[in-house]
């Protein structure tokens, strides 16, 4: 079986399983899966930068957290905010932040880029952390989930955890398709070229800075989408959402699943969050186990689960021949 067909089948089976899950699963697991799918959107947005464009950002959580804060700041205490107003505002906020930060950080490359993205995310972290307006280190609440009512018609109700689940599932699938389309477009060809050899892309006539900046903004906006729904799900935001630990975990999801594939980050999000649950059940000092796990993955699984599956597939094919 060719790899691309195996992948299509796996994706389809996965999608059907996720679509049917709420019919059987209980509330706790439905909400856990919702959280995982939100993180999968976040991880895909980061993979667009890391895996496809070669931009190792350690500050991607800034856009995730910022969009959540936009919702928290716009949501009234005694009523639900409109999804159709707050979501565009949150995405716009994340995009604008990505544009400004991207304009500065993309002037650097390599190791500098890693350090500078981290530093700018930290700057936003402190901006929110130190300001009374945003609730400081205590964070802020979103008292009601945004309402999707439009001219009196309620398409879906985010207060209903089943509805919320399906909205997020649709968004995850939508983001997957959207990024897939973008990657096959002329724009996608350019960013992949930049990852491979930016210098040559310039000598072929591509103003690479512009393309990297647009890519950074797309990634930041999609991260904002994930951050918005994360805030909506938990009804609470705090500065930790922007912290570099959040960025680090997302990077780990990308690597664990298999970077440079869109399927990988989704897989990585599932694996990381389920492992987190597992380790938390084992010991109070689960971060110790997680740290060891991350080190082990870097040492022994550099191409992630996707790479492992591909390797096993090739092996089986070789045996069948």
């Amino acid at each position: 079986m060719p790899a691309s067909r195996a992948l299509t089948i796996a994706l389809f089976v996965g999608l059907v399983a996720l679509a049917l899950f709420p019919l059987f699963g209980d509330k706790y697991y439905i909400q856990l899966l919702t959280k995982i799918m939100i993180m999968a959107i976040f991880a895909m947005s980061l993979d667009l930068l890391v895996g496809y464009t070669g931009l190792v950002s350690l500050g991607h959580a800034a856009f995730f957290g910022l969009a959540g804060y936009v919702l928290a700041m716009m949501a009234p205490q005694d009523a639900a905010a409109s999804l159709w107003i707050t979501l565009p505002a949150a995405l716009g906020g994340a995009a604008l932040a990505a544009l400004i930060i991207g304009f500065l950080v993309l002037r650097t490359s390599g190791i500098y880029f890693i350090m500078v993205t981290l530093a700018f995310a930290q700057m936003l972290f402190f901006f929110i952390h130190d300001s009374k307006y945003f609730g400081g280190s205590d964070g802020a609440y979103v008292y009601f989930r945004p309402t999707a009512a439009l001219t009196g018609v309620q398409l879906f109700d985010l207060e209903n955890f089943n509805h919320f689940y399906y909205v997020v599932l649709a968004l995850m699938a939508g983001v997957y398709v959207l990024l897939q389309v973008i990657l096959r477009s002329p724009f996608g060809a350019v960013i992949v070229g930049i990852r491979t050899n930016e210098h040559r892309m310039r000598s072929l006539g591509y103003p690479t800075f512009r393309y990297k900046l647009v890519c950074f903004v797309i990634g930041g906006t999609v991260a904002g989408l994930a951050g918005y729904f994360n805030a909506a799900q938990f009804g609470f935001v705090n500065p930790e959402l922007l912290s570099w630990h959040q960025s680090g975990i997302a990077l780990m999801m990308v690597l664990l699943g298999g970077m440079g594939t869109l399927f990988g980050p989704v897989l990585g999000a599932f694996a990381m969050i389920l492992l987190e649950q597992l380790f938390q059940g084992l010991t109070e000092h689960w971060l110790l186990v997680m740290g060891g796990f991350i080190i082990a993955v870097v040492l022994f699984l550099p191409h992630g689960l996707y790479g492992l599956a591909a390797q096993l597939g090739r092996k089986r094919e070789a045996e069948n021949d």
Binding site: I182, S185, P186, F187, G188, A189, Y206, Y211
Partner: peptide
């Protein structure tokens, strides 16, 4: 090349 939706191979 700021074209995002059409396949690159169809130009």
């Amino acid at each position: 090349s700021m074209r995002f939706f059409r396949r690159a191979t169809t130009y």
